[in-house]
């Protein structure tokens, strides 16, 4: 029991759980903003897994201090990777949100199933004509 609840299992299990939860939002949800939030949760899980991979028991943060007793240090490379990954994640999320804003303005909905139907509708069909008429105005239907 004790081995099962070790900190390593908790961290790795939590990271894997976050990835699965985010993936559930991506594949099973129909609302575009929820899909984007799922991508953000996946990113959090991947970052947690990377940082956990650099863990060493009893080790200090990878910052040298002349006064401190020199001991082992955790691996600095995953931390540097995660630092850049977080910023990239923010940029990707912002780009996705601007695309969602544009899509909602153009088609009036963020439902991926409805969007697929509208985009695949042949020209001249009621759906495509409705899309042309509505432009950007109106509310989500």
């Amino acid at each position: 029991m004790n081995e099962l609840l070790s900190i390593g299992n908790l961290l790795y299990g939590g990271a894997a759980g976050l990835i699965v939860i985010g993936l559930f939002a991506v594949v099973a949800r129909r609302h575009l903003i929820r899909v984007l939030l799922g991508v953000a949760v996946i990113e959090a899980g991947v970052n947690l897994m990377l940082v956990a991979a650099g863990f060493r028991p009893g080790a200090a943060a990878p910052i040298f201090d002349p006064q401190a007793i020199s001991g082992p240090m955790v691996d600095p490379i995953p931390q540097a990777l995660v630092l850049t990954a977080i910023v990239i994640g923010v940029a990707v999320l912002a780009l996705g949100l601007t695309l969602a804003i544009r899509i909602h303005r153009q088609y009036g909905t963020l439902d991926t199933v409805a969007l697929t139907r509208i985009v695949n509708a042949p020209a001249g069909s009621p759906e495509s004509r409705a899309m042309m008429q509505r432009g950007g105005g109106g509310h989500e239907s």
Binding site: S6, L11, Y12, G13, A16, I19, A53, G54, D75
Partner: peptide
């Protein structure tokens, strides 16, 4: 798939050679 992968990961091992060299 993830749980099988994660179960095989070493945890708390010494840093990889690159990380050790950088430290």
């Amino acid at each position: 798939f993830l749980s099988v992968l994660v179960g095989g990961l070493p945890f708390g091992a010494a840093p990889m050679q690159v990380g050790q060299a950088i430290v």
